[in-house]
Write a protein that binds this DNA or RNA. Sequence first.
RNA 1: GCGAGUGUAGCCAAGUGGUUAAGGCUCCGGUUUGUGGUACCGGCAUUCGUGGGUUCGAUUCCCAUCAUUCGCCCCA
Length: 416
Amino acid sequence: MANKITAPKGTKDILPQDAAQWQLMEAQALEIFSKYGYKEIRTPIFEATELFARGVGDTTDIVNKEMYTFEKSDRSLTLRPENTAGVVRAYIENGMSRISPPVKLWYKGPMFRYERPQAGRQRQFHQVGVELFGIKEAAADAEVIVVATNYLKSLGLNDLEVELNSLGCPDCRENFKTALKKSLESELDELCEDCKNRYEKNPLRLLDCKVPTCNAIFAQPQIQEVVQSDFICDECSVHFEEVKSYLSNMSVKYSINKLMVRGLDYYNRTVFEIKSNNLGSQNAVCGGGRYDSLVANLGGESTPAVGWAMGMERINSLIKSVEPVKIDAYIVSDTSVEAFKLAEELRAAGLSVEIDLSSKKFTKQLEKAAKTANFALILGEDEIKNNSVAVKNLDTGKQETVNRKDASERIKIGAS
RNA sequence: GCGAGUGUAGCCAAGUGGUUAAGGCUCCGGUUUGUGGUACCGGCAUUCGUGGGUUCGAUUCCCAUCAUUCGCCCCA
């Protein structure tokens, strides 16, 4: 075992027995997103490091300690830890601001973050996501959320919770941060180490600390008063009310979580998550929100935008497994050239067909057929002479000899 | 970066300080060289993650190391 090469830490093979579920997730993405007019975009798996530093935000953990960064020809490149920054870069670079808005894009693919693996968290993982550019109205926020819930519904996931919050505009956010920090100033020494850190770097995150002593402090009335206050400005407040109103009218169930903060710096106004109780500690299936300043920050014309991403491994662990499908026919023959030719004829007619490639005995071939196929096609000397083939239904055991050219029709009828 | 659990075959898994390390699934071969999937027989770990220590002797006890799982942090 000493020299066995294994998959790198935090990576996983997606094996043939799981392929059907991944294909389903991808097929539903294409189908559902297309109904809303979203077009697929495929961006590079690595980008200039600066894109993520400026896009995702250089105060975030993702950028500070989780990126796979490497140097090549004096360029600093990074394996994408998420794809919104890449899509925005492509939007700007390809002049999509000249397309009449909205510009609706979706993507799927691997992302990379250098973290300790655990349930629902890998170093290479896959996301599917949508981005909508050019619409500042609340209808856009509502649409992307509806797209998300309908996509999950199409995979049989109806009972997931949508959590909603508004961060307001940058001014609202600053006001809230200041108020919160002020309210906690006197308690600072009592907080846990993580919280002291958050106090400086990311005050909004303080509230979902899991340490009991911290929770007790946050539960104090004078602090709750700040937490529960409507700190967002009138304009942001109107926008948020409109988003909620759309969702209610679309019968999308949601709850308001005033403590929800997104980890990426670029969000403003609407933020949301979709969670499941069946995922262990990493319970968010989908996360997203509005990011009206990102396009300008990355050098484009100021363009409002909203979008989300879902973790495909997390979705995959929630959808029920797809039953393996048998092939249509397995050809049993001692004359491999003829078997080969017959298989090609049937494949051309649209069937899935396998043959024995290793000169196994008749009974072994039939055994293999019984395990893997719905029909066995027996092609012996007599059949070849008569230009016929014996078609055996492996469920019922019934067998009949038909003209070779009718074999594909016989199987299609029998299979239906 | 921090904390806890687990490492016996492709998978599941029993086991004990002492001759050849149970069993099941899968796979391969045979009983059956033109009729299967259910039966029966046989094959598949010179070795228990790796290195070192204790011992007459270690898969079993100790230490280290690596891998993996779960949790913290963070996020999809």
